[in-house]
Design a protein around this nucleic acid. Structure first.
Length: 554
DNA sequence: CGCATTTGACCGGCGC
DNA sequence: GCGCCGGTCAAATGCG
């Protein structure tokens, strides 16, 4: 990266430097050449002043401080080099007077001193930036760790009370009106599931009322975590019990309703999320916690010829299976960006349309994410949280389960499908549609997570087309930070579809914000459109389901 | 040699 | 109880 930066900035400076009369005088015997040099040296002072002025203007026009300083360094380095050459040769040839020599050498010393100062300041700024980055990463990790420890403590201390309340048929649940805490929503969802596992384990033979009670525990715990992790983050420890009591009392931003699913608690704990081996008694509590952390899934459907969409994270493939009803194998990946990261994903092509790639995410990352991955994580996280929100709301008829479709693409038939009947709640974001520009609304609300340095965003009207040309996306991330001359070429080859899903932070951020924005207003949403709750038992949503179900809006 | 991928074995849940 | 299925593990293999 540095080389490309230097290259792109050196060339004009070199050209300018070569305009300076430093032509090598190889033939000392030629009087004509000597005179020519003397003539050039006659306007040495005015030339020098002009170049100093140009440099000042150039420096003033460079917006970025770092680039400015480095540019200045390079420029000044050339000044020094060329000046040295000219002075030395001129002195050697006896072409400079003593006064001129003193003057230019004094200027040279000054320039060198300035160069040294700039170098020092440049280094200082670099160190500062690196220090800030390190601090940010460590704080982020610390925050995640604290939240996990806090939530676990809550379960241990108050879990029994929640279970008791749930068994009594308590129907209240807190649903925060706003959330977008990066990376926390999935955790909250997962924590909710954690609570379900603990609470339901003691009464698995109960009938449907108990099932609903368990789901209510999900909602309540979710609300608890949200309130403690978002708005009360500064007083987490003090407010845990308070939040719990408010939660149990049904006050404070309560959206009443039960988390409705059709399956039994046994089904809740099965399959991908169950972590059968992780749940064994021989495993540590952390492992059990990790296993139960992974509950809610977010499935993203996108057209791509690549074997896997690039979402900014590092994945390691740990298995591949042939799934029933689909001739295409299903690949299993786990996140390897940090040791012990519980996030996993499945990748499988649609049986009906091989160009459609279904990526299903589960769990939340326990480490800082790169910008592109952050955008993707935010999107899936928001969708996962939306799932709980939608399920709760749909129970009391306020909001249809597939409200995301109207949230993101109000005029399209569907971009998202929410399953409230699966063994694990799942949101399917169907990005294989081709929405018209009028249908795509970027949210006006600012995002809560820091916007990454964005690549040139694809025009909204190209979104649908881009989705179809998602073959060559895989090279994007390698070139994202390059800024080199190949960027345009790479950009041409990048699939804007997958980019829209995973790499274009603008889009994913917009999607996340749209979801989030909608959730923030979900309590006031009117019913209207019919809900479409799919039977996702045994992962049928992508195994056996006709792809056309997701492509209604085409 | 280290790391990632492949692939068969294994496990637990579910349906019959 | 048995077979099917989804999910995971871990040894074998491939690759840079």
């Amino acid at each position: 990266m540095m080389s490309s930066f230097l290259g792109s900035n050196l060339r004009p400076k070199i050209s300018g430097a070569l305009d300076f009369p430093m032509i090598v005088i190889r033939d000392n015997e030629s009087g004509a050449e000597k005179r020519r040099v003397v003539d050039e040296m006659d306007f040495f002072s005015s030339e020098k002043k002009e170049r100093v002025e140009r440099k000042k203007e150039s420096d003033a026009n460079v917006p970025d401080l770092r680039i400015k300083k480095e540019d200045l360094t390079i420029n000044m380095g050339l000044h020094v080099a060329s000046r040295n050459s000219v002075i030395d040769r001129s002195v050697d040839d006896g072409l400079l007077s003593n006064e001129e020599e003193k003057e230019t050498k004094a200027e040279l010393a000054a320039v060198r001193a300035e160069l040294g100062r700039m170098n020092e300041e440049n280094q200082r700024l670099k160190n500062m930036l690196s220090h800030v980055t390190e601090n940010y990463n460590s704080l982020h990790m610390h925050l995640i760790t604290l939240m996990q420890q806090k939530n676990q403590a809550i379960h241990e201390v108050n879990g029994e009370k929640i279970v008791e309340s749930a068994k009594k048929g308590y129907e209240g649940a807190i649903m925060p009106r706003q959330f977008i805490a990066l990376g926390s929503a999935a955790s909250l969802v997962d924590e909710a599931s954690h609570s379900t596992t603990e609470g339901g384990s003691g009464d698995r033979s109960a009938g449907s009322p108990t099932v609903n009670n368990n789901h209510e525990v999900i909602s309540m715990d979710y609300g608890l975590n949200k309130s403690s992790s978002n708005s009360n983050s500064n007083n987490n420890n003090n407010n845990n019990n308070i939040s719990k009591e408010r939660l149990l009392d049904g006050r404070d931003h309560v959206i009443r309703g039960a988390f409705v699913r059709e399956e039994s608690p046994d089904q809740v704990s099965q399959s991908w999320s169950k972590g059968t081996k992780l749940m064994s008694p021989t495993k540590s509590s952390d492992q059990v916690h990790e296993a139960t952390m992974r509950k809610t899934r977010v499935s993203v459907r996108a057209r791509s010829e690549a074997p896997m969409i690039s979402d900014g994270c590092q994945w390691r493939k740990y298995g591949q299976k042939m799934a029933k009803g689909n001739p295409c194998p299903r690949a299993y990946y786990r996140c390897t960006m940090a040791a012990g990261c519980p996030v996993r994903k499945q990748v499988q092509r649609c049986a009906e349309d091989r160009s459609v790639l279904t990526t299903t995410y589960e769990g939340n990352h326990n480490h800082p994410l790169p910008p592109a991955a952050m955008a993707m994580a935010s999107t899936t996280t928001a969708a996962a949280s939306m799932l709980l929100s939608g399920s709760m709301s749909s129970a009391d008829g306020l909001t249809p389960p597939n409200f995301l479709a109207r949230a993101v693409l109000p005029c399209s038939s569907s971009i998202a499908t929410i399953s409230a009947s699966a063994p694990f709640p799942t949101v399917t974001l169907d990005l294989t549609h081709s929405p018209t520009p009028l249908q795509f609304h970027r949210p006006a609300a600012p995002l809560a997570f820091p916007p990454p340095v964005p690549p040139p965003p694809p025009p909204p009207q190209l979104f649908g087309r881009a989705l179809y040309d998602s073959t060559k996306f895989s090279g994007l991330h390698a070139s994202a930070g390059g800024g080199g001359p190949d960027n345009a070429k790479v950009a041409d080859s990048v699939s804007a579809a997958t980019a829209a899903i995973a790499a274009d932070p603008n889009f994913t951020a917009a999607l996340a914000a749209a979801i989030t924005s909608y959730i923030g207003n979900s309590g006031s949403s009117s019913g209207g459109g019919g809900s479409r709750v799919e039977n996702m038992k045994n992962n049928k949503i992508y195994d056996n389901k006709d792809c056309s179900d997701h492509n209604m809006g085409g």
